[in-house]
Design a protein around this nucleic acid. Sequence first.
DNA 1: CTGTTAGCGCTTTCAC
DNA 2: GTGAAAGCGCTAACAG
Lengths: 381, 381
Amino acid sequence: MSTRGARNTPAPQGSSGTGEGGPALAPPRRATISDVAREAGTGKTSISRYLNGEFSVLSPDLRARIEAAIERLDYRPNQMARGLKRGRNRLLGLLLADLANPYSVEVLQGVEAACHALGYMPLICHAANEVDMERRYLQLLTAYRVEGVIVNALGVPESMLKPMGSGGIPAVLVDRTVDGLDADMVGLDNAGAARLGVEHLLAHGYDDLVFVVQPFEHVSSRREREAAFRASVGATPDATDAVARLAVHGARSVSATTHVLDLHDEAGVAASLAALDAHIADAARRNARCALFAANAPVALRLALHLKAEFGAQWQQHAALIAIDDPEWAELAGITTIRQPTREIGYRAVQFLHERIEGMALATRAQALPGELVVRASTPG
Amino acid sequence: MSTRGARNTPAPQGSSGTGEGGPALAPPRRATISDVAREAGTGKTSISRYLNGEFSVLSPDLRARIEAAIERLDYRPNQMARGLKRGRNRLLGLLLADLANPYSVEVLQGVEAACHALGYMPLICHAANEVDMERRYLQLLTAYRVEGVIVNALGVPESMLKPMGSGGIPAVLVDRTVDGLDADMVGLDNAGAARLGVEHLLAHGYDDLVFVVQPFEHVSSRREREAAFRASVGATPDATDAVARLAVHGARSVSATTHVLDLHDEAGVAASLAALDAHIADAARRNARCALFAANAPVALRLALHLKAEFGAQWQQHAALIAIDDPEWAELAGITTIRQPTREIGYRAVQFLHERIEGMALATRAQALPGELVVRASTPG
DNA sequence: CTGTTAGCGCTTTCAC
DNA sequence: GTGAAAGCGCTAACAG
């Protein structure tokens, strides 16, 4: 017997004076399953059955009454309660390092598509490039008992993720690996992408290649791209940062340099850009054809902005530029890019996660999807 | 007394073979408050008290034992259960029409900042320009009993939102109003922004102004911008679409046209763009100085892309362009814009919502924040 | 200071 | 076919 007594009865929603606008008098709490049961003159069990589509065990009459009661009360089952009871809530966490990066938004679109197809609801969390935020969100996701997480990790999520890969929440990594963590991973074929770019540059006669990248020690994708860049040019892998590396291609020798640009350090950016200018000027003096290879879109934008400030609207004619990532403005700015299959990356990530959630605990997998070269005006020749 | 008996004991998390990689044997369910109580040799109440920081009513000894137990079990309170019991979950829904629009991402950043300051957790939902999605997410948010929603609505959320403005979930609208709904609203001062743009154009000697906007009947912000554009030029408000309107400014007359560009209809876009070309050509013939006024960033991008295809990299010299919104590529492309205080919009929205949630049910408010003109190369003269 | 007792809203045996 | 009762994990009175 319900000890409820005369509770603030959830009145049918009707038009509660939206027109006149007086503050709604009795904040009509949402109807609960018990309210519906009472309204339909039956027990909670039947309501629950109805909600879960077990129509085969409901007389047409009862079913109709329930339907009506639900309608009348504008009843919506409380997912929190459901999840609590059932033990699963069909929630997936999506932790993005930086939504301002178009890459993230596109991955997100893939994730959403897959979620809808598989019946999940993605909880999107945005770390905004702050490690604390990342940790906080990870905690929150754990607290809400999401069934799995897709993580585009920031620098160092440390052990936060550890309990997930092992006994904790199933996790799949996107774009970057996390140091101590053994989890599924999906991202770009960085080696292939870098090679694609280098080959394009070489084919177009550039012989002074500068790879521009944010600090890459702690971000696997950047590390891989940089390494592949060097390998593709054929430079010795032990050459150090900012030191020109030479390799012979066909009849000529080509130089390969790696240039670090820390976008989160304005002062550093200025210095780095100045050094880059010097390099470009020197190349011009040597009559070498210099090309900048941006490791990702944010770097490319910064570079393009700088070149424009330096050489004016016609900067395209002064320095070649190619970039990994293909943001919407690349077409407008006429920048050659290597486009990532972003949406597919997001989609695959969810599929991986789904399989793990369903218990298919295989060995951890890593999928590297190929990039696609999009040639535009910034790499003439 | 707990009838639990010998349950799958939640073992301390330890290193469960991440190295070797064998599938974790006993999927160690997360510890519950009861587990912790048992482990600490006390009752659930004390644990709960500890969790809620009521240290003043806990002996140092007990407190220490609890601390240890929690640590040992790697216990994380289940938010679902908490929320269910407490009746509030500190969750806010943020429903965005289109995350691919930088505007949305920036508003989102403001929302996040405010949420963290006020202790909320934003649930980000992305309708991806699909009305069904929008409805589904709204349902989901209701089902999860979020305490409030911030809605950047798509065309027609119909009655879905109705129960919110009135007896339902508190809601605040961003950028656009929803027809039948009486709710708080925060967005750009559209009239002021349009005026700012028109005045800039007029001051720079343009006398053939074309306002380019997506179908605007159903989107209040577009409607307002278009109306303000006309009003600012001084054209008669009853002039119909695509019909030149004239007004006299100082010694000369200026023409004002509204041009619709439906970005979701590729064929329509082509036709519309062709008509625009004709207009531009005609203006050139008449020796009029023509300027395009894009109602928002997506339109501006499409326009810039088209102009570039039409006039080449030097398009800036052939047609003037100004836009509301200030995406990151505007600087690179050299486009004059009217920047929206996006982050502030998001922040204010949360503040409004918070006040409503806290029960301060005042009359519905609407806040229009001012835009800021950013002059670049696209409006020479 | 501490533990016992009721539930939050829902699902799920297990009887009728 | 249908419903009563026992919890999911947690909080909040009430007693001690």
